[in-house]
Structures are given as C-alpha cells and as structure tokens.
Amino acid sequence: MSSQTGAALNVLLLGAFLFFAYRMIVARQVRGVLTAFVAQSLCLAGSAFTLGASTHLWELFALGAVTLVSKPILIPIVLTRLVPGAVYERRELPHTMDPRLSLLASAALSGIAYLVILPLIAVAAGPTLGGANVVVGFSGLLLGAYQVTIRREAIPQLLGILAMENGAFLAGISIAPDFPLIAELAIAFDIPLLAFIVGLLTRALHEQIGTTETASLTSLREESPW
C-alpha cells in the first residue's frame, strides 16, 4: 500500500471512529449502542492494519488481529449470552441530558482534545506515526467518559468504558506502536474478562433488582462534604 493511500484510508477510518463515538452517545436503544461499539472497534482494528502496512511494524498487525477477535466478536457474544435479551430491545434509554445538547457537548469535547493534544505533538517531534490518531483517540477517550456519565443503563455504561479503551489504544498505535506487550495482552485477555465479569454483575442486578437501570441504584447515598 502506498503511503498516500494508507494515510487517506487511515483518515477515513478515524472519521468513522469519531462518528461511531457520537452514535454511541445518542443511540436510543442498547442494541444501537452495542452496534456502534462493534463498528468503532472495527475502525480501530482497521487503523492498526493501515498503519502497520505503512510502517511494516508487526506489532500493529498483532494488535489489529487481537482487536478484531476480541472486541467486535467476543464482547458482543459474551454480553448477549450473559444479559437477558429484553435489555437490548428496550427503547428510549434514559439520558441525563437532551441528546441534541449531548451532541454539542461531544463536539466541544473533541475540540478540547484537539487543543490539548496539538502542543504535545509539536514537542514530541519524532516518532509519531499519525498525529490525527492521537487527537481522535483522546477525543474518543473523553467521549467514552462522557457516555459513562450521562447513561443510566448498565450495558451502555460498560460500553462507554470499553469505548474509552478504544480511544486510548487508537492514540496508542500512533504514539507507541511498539509498546511492549501491554496492548495485546490487555485486549486479548483483560477486556474479554472485563466483559464477562461485568456481564455477570449486570445479570445479578437484573435478577436481584429487576432492572439494569443504574439510575435506580441510589440507596447508598449518604453524606456530602458541602
């Protein structure tokens, strides 16, 4: 693959990555959030393969392959097996914020990511493969954190954490492509284990409380420092 084609393809994948991050924030059904997460994970794997082809770094191919198996395949299987199907079909998920305002806030977060990362790319001046990966990755991390905050349902909150990891690793393949072992190990073992354990916890919530709405988990609130 020529470096120009590779760069163009990578930018396309980054745009799609960001689009699916927004899609996860505004989706009205759990299944919609899960589908957007799968698509975002495919973009991450695609970006790893594209950068791997341009740089001939085997670590990026390994990371792309592990991502491809772990996130778009294993996680949906684990979650749909563990958590009752009715949870995925529920419409009109509770938001703490109007979806239109959420989109505006998301755009602002992407802007902040751009402003924070740009000076860093300037000082690093060297082995960064694609500066855009760092900006979009950091933006993905912030958007995932935002999703965890505004969602009031168990599975979208979990997927928000996993979307944050997608963002971190999207930046990682650019700034630390030969990062020793951690990314591969984390994606191969840690993330499926995380999905399994949190899936079990979600099922326990469903059985014990009768809902997976985390908004109803308020019995422990007690003191406030203010």
């Binding site: 995932g144 944050m164 971190a168 995380l194 422990l220």
Partner: peptide
C-alpha cells in the same frame, strides 16, 4: 450490588485514563 457497580464503573474508568497516561 450497587456498591460493586459503582466500584467497577469508577475504578475501570480511572484505569482506562491511566492506560493512556502510560502510553504517553
């Protein structure tokens, strides 16, 4: 279960921020 959910959400959210820190 509520405590476990809160523990999981907050600490895993933090750990994900930290992984980007190590990458940086």
């Amino acid at each position: 279960l509520e405590a476990a959910w809160k523990y999981m959400t907050i600490t895993l959210l933090g750990a994900t921020m930290a992984v980007l820190g190590f990458l940086v």
